[in-house]
Design a protein around this nucleic acid. Structure first.
Length: 344
DNA sequence: AACTACGTCAACCGCATGGCC
DNA sequence: TGGCCATGCGGTTGACGTAGT
């Protein structure tokens, strides 16, 4: 548009890469290593920017990438736990996942957040069919039969009352939908975003529970990890008993967001008939964290999308299996209030 | 068959950082 | 010390495929 300094350069090509371009890029890396990206264009090898070349190499051409391979349950768990620990430091998280790029992790997380947001945002009248559809579509990774079984059980369970009668107490789920990041992170991180958990949880019974804790060993020696998805189930054996049960419920938007205290005060997790659901609390039970509620675990590779294990001996529940009724008592505002302060 | 919703993924953009001169 | 440049990172967008209606 506005060439600086009067320097004219050949037109930069954008868009999908061709096989020929890939081969040129591979050849460049063979000769020079994965650097000097800008020289690719300056030498006239490719009409691509250095950034574009680097991105193509890192995300697609680099050896040992797990392209086209869905995240295993173990990988999913690692991402979730590391995201809780580090925040949206995708490059850092990806170092714990051999064969995965930061883009992979980022896309995985984004997809997951969108799915959660959609479920929570969907009006009641649409949630049932939507969830049924979703359950069907997710059945490639989890058992739709089990899902319907859980749904049936949940439907038979007594429906909890609305979470809060007082509008001021209503959870502002609409504003927390983006789920850009969880608040419990920043160990040794100089994050641009203020951590939320400590402030927002306040003296809630979750305070402390949400505190970050060292979870995974540093990515030293990936030999045990660098396997096909099916083979890495115990690679993080040292991992974590620590869980962040509400991590996905928190939003990155630091503004009003979730009033965690009211949420925590208002509801508790109930397991009944193998199904977990929220129930309004009449009295606060300060020392009773909802262990297992939306915690994240995976037992095997069939557990994709599996995020609601019930701890303490209760059966696991898949997120994909969650009945939409679980969210019925969240009174969603008609439209989330904009939070311009959070955008730059 | 057409439409819609959703999931996935590649690629771009803007900004930050660090090295070099 | 400040400017330039290369590189890295996180956020966002859009294309495409698939499944449901």
């Amino acid at each position: 548009m506005h060439p600086r300094g009067g320097r004219e350069r050949a037109a930069v090509r954008k868009g999908p890469w061709t096989a020929e371009e890939d081969e040129v890029l591979r050849q460049h890396v063979r000769e020079h290593g994965p650097r000097e990206w800008s020289s690719i264009r300056s030498k006239g090898l490719l009409p691509r920017t250095g950034k574009s070349c680097r991105l193509r190499w890192v995300n697609k051409l680099r050896p040992n990438l797990k392209t086209g391979c869905k995240f295993s349950a173990e990988e999913e768990r690692v991402v979730i736990e590391l995201q809780a620990q580090f925040g949206n430091k995708w490059a850092r998280i990806s170092t714990y996942l051999p064969g995965r790029t930061d883009n992979d992790v980022k896309n995985f997380w984004s997809t997951r957040q969108k799915r959660l947001a959609r479920i929570l945002r969907a009006p009641l009248s649409r949630r049932r069919p939507a969830a049924a559809k979703h359950s069907a579509s997710a059945s490639t990774a989890s058992s739709s039969a089990a899902a319907s079984h859980d749904h049936d059980q949940l439907l038979r369970a007594p429906k909890p009352e609305p979470l809060c009668q007082d509008q001021d107490q209503v959870l502002r789920l609409g504003t927390m939908i983006p789920f850009q990041e969880t608040p419990m992170h920043h160990i040794g991180e100089s994050s641009q975003e203020p951590p939320l958990a400590a402030n927002q949880c306040g003296d809630s019974p979750f305070h402390g529970l949400l505190d970050p804790a060292p979870i995974l060993q540093p990515p030293i020696g990936f030999a045990a990890m660098d396997t096909a998805a099916a083979g890495c189930s115990s690679s993080y054996g040292a991992a974590p008993e620590a869980h962040y049960p509400l991590s996905f419920l928190y939003a990155g938007d630091p503004a009003p967001m979730l009033d965690a205290s009211s949420f925590i005060d208002a509801a508790t997790l109930v397991h009944s008939g193998g199904v977990a659901y929220l129930e309004p609390k009449r009295e606060l039970e300060p020392q009773q964290p909802p262990v297992g509620f939306f915690g994240l675990e995976g037992e095997d590779d069939d557990d994709y999308g599996h995020i609601v294990p019930a701890r303490r001996g209760t059966p696991d529940v898949h997120f994909d299996d969650l009945a939409p009724e679980m969210f019925d008592f969240f009174e969603l505002p008609p439209s989330p209030p904009p939070s311009p302060s959070t955008r730059h």
